[in-house]
Design a protein around this nucleic acid. Structure first.
Lengths: 339, 339
DNA sequence: AAATAAAATGCAATCGATTGCGCATTTGTA
DNA sequence: TACAAATGCGCAATCGATTGCATTTTATTT
């Protein structure tokens, strides 16, 4: 297949009757090599169409210049935004990003993470799978001292850098907003409670109720996986209560949309009869009708911050761990505005 | 930093007082090694926490088990779907995917592609940048015989595998549909004509007009970059013609949405006064109101196909090039239905 | 028991770039 | 002029895994 093997520094060296070390140094702008020699070498490198073999270089340097990113699903706006932001920063810093999706499966996540380790990524940015329950594969990174950054879905028992939004405040604000709009009985579509983000959102919701002297009714909380389908079922459950809610705080925008569609089909008006608020500010939440009130979750910025953080760690400029909590912002739209 | 360096096959060998070659063979299940030895070796490997160093292996094997994917913007539903589909297949076949975004800039695209070459990707899947005009960086891959697959935005003068949708038929169908709905004067927001996909969409549009005996008026075609902002400007231009259109075929869904918002703000009703059709079936097109008629463009499947194709090429199971044209499907929704 | 065949393992080079150490040549200084 | 200090460059080992060929060990046959 490969008729003409790639030229190497040795080929350049042979051409000029000098040593490969000199070529290597010249191409890396090492001051030990004279300007004249450097120029000659670069000229020959060009004429031969030389491209450094990063694999060889990485092996020797014991680093891959690569950052691994693991998300539940690439094909989701929030996550693809994070990836986009991280790639942006990584590229500018000369890093390559390798990407995998766990499909929210623990087993795949474990495989991916181990394979990234074998590939000797210099750092790992991850948002863990919904189904994940053991974290040995991640502890491996900590043990080997390979920088690890969680974003959005973090693991509390692993001490490392984290970038999250203030989900508690988010849940609180959403609920307070609904109360302010005069809604009395507020339901909640809660996500899997093994993930802190969903626990926090729920706790914010509960706290807001408490603070406003509203009785907490656990029948109003439906736990589900926040998919489009489960959102419909959950809404159905809520509305068939003997005392159904007049507002629903949905764990994400997807279920908010499901709820809206379900309610609309039943002739229930939004926001007049039932108020709806989502979470994450997916692009569609702005353009559907009625537009969905939600909490912003700046994916691109999170990705950028995650990459910045991990690069600082990789370059050993920093030793301490930090948890960056991005502020949440309530975006009030039509679906919850009745005043 | 790295207090305990990673164990290598040599450490395993030393432990068992055998040679590294034997260890390597054992771990690769080479039949030349006896079962007994294999078991001993695997046990020690486990106890040492050995993880193969893919870099070293790749260097020796002259392949990286990596597929590069370059898209204009990761953070766009269509592209992230393609990535997701490709990752899906690649992962199952034991490949890693590395991802970069060109931001639709030729210069960044060139850098990325060269860097991927240096990283010795085994194959490259790419949708070229809008701004791209020279393709030497891609020809490099062809020259070196590294599998190259275009999707969506292909380069006609490079002979290689391509996966596209039938844009011409798409443009034709959209236009025919608008005519069938009784629209008389159909405008078009066209994308940059250096990309075939946009040329084809426009040509399909023109052909449909011709076939229906409708005069072609080039004032009705506004060329732009199909961004949200330019979509507004372009619509504005169209509507301020002395003889404005009663329907607009927008080059993508983003501009379709822009057009709708612009028109709505001017009190123009959709689809009654003006019909709108987009292209690509972005998720929001279904949920906005009115919902946007559009052409489906199955990103996930395209990604899967692209990965399958490139893997076959990498594994040398195939030598001939093919262009897979996925059929277009018109999705009729509210924005263009007035009958 | 000797000879032959078969099975199991080891040696050493290789992939391509990097780098500590050392040698040789040039430049500077007294 | 002589000697020290730069300066410029090469040698050879290294990163960790792989593999053609050689060698040793074990099994089989006569």
């Amino acid at each position: 297949m490969n008729k003409n093997p790639e030229p190497t520094i040795h080929d350049i060296a042979k051409e000029l009757k000098i040593s490969a070390s000199t070529v290597s140094r010249a191409l890396n702008d090492n001051p030990r090599i004279s300007l004249k020699t450097k120029e000659k070498i670069k000229a020959v490198a060009d004429s031969l169409g030389y491209r450094p073999n990063t694999l060889a270089s990485n092996l020797r340097n014991k680093k891959s210049n690569t950052i691994g990113i693991v998300v539940p699903l690439i094909n989701r706006y929030f996550f693809s935004s994070v990836i986009s932001g991280a790639e942006d920063i990584a590229y500018k810093a000369g890093f390559t990003v390798v990407i995998s999706q766990s499909n929210d499966l623990a087993s795949k996540e474990i495989n991916i993470v181990q394979s990234m380790f074998s590939n000797r990524v210099d750092g790992l940015i991850i948002s863990i799978a919904m189904q994940a329950s053991t974290f040995e594969h991640l502890k491996l990174f900590r043990k080997k001292n390979i920088p690890l950054v969680f974003f959005d879905r973090a693991v509390p028992e692993i001490e490392t850098d984290k970038i999250v939004v203030d989900d508690f405040a988010g849940g609180f604000r959403v609920t307070q907003h609904l109360i302010d709009q005069g809604y009395q009985r507020i339901g909640h579509l809660a996500g899997p409670q093994n993930l802190i983000i969903y626990r926090d959102r729920k706790n914010g919701y509960i706290e807001a109720l408490r603070k406003n002297g509203i009785d907490y009714d656990d029948k109003l909380i439906i736990y589900n996986r926040l998919t489009s389908d489960e959102g419909v079922t959950a809404t159905q459950q809520l509305m068939s209560l003997s005392n159904p809610p007049d507002a629903i705080f949905c764990g994400n925008d997807t279920t908010a949309l499901s709820a809206m569609i379900y309610l609309r089909n039943r002739g229930i008006r939004i926001p007049e009869d039932v108020g709806i608020v989502g979470f994450s500010n997916e692009p569609f939440s702005k353009v559907v009708s009625p537009s969905i009130s939600t909490i912003s979750q700046p994916g691109f910025e999170m990705g950028q911050k995650a990459a910045e953080l991990i690069i600082r760690k990789i370059e050993n400029k920093e030793r301490t761990y930090q948890t960056i909590v991005l502020p949440t912002e309530l975006i009030v739209r039509e679906s919850s505005t009745r005043k």
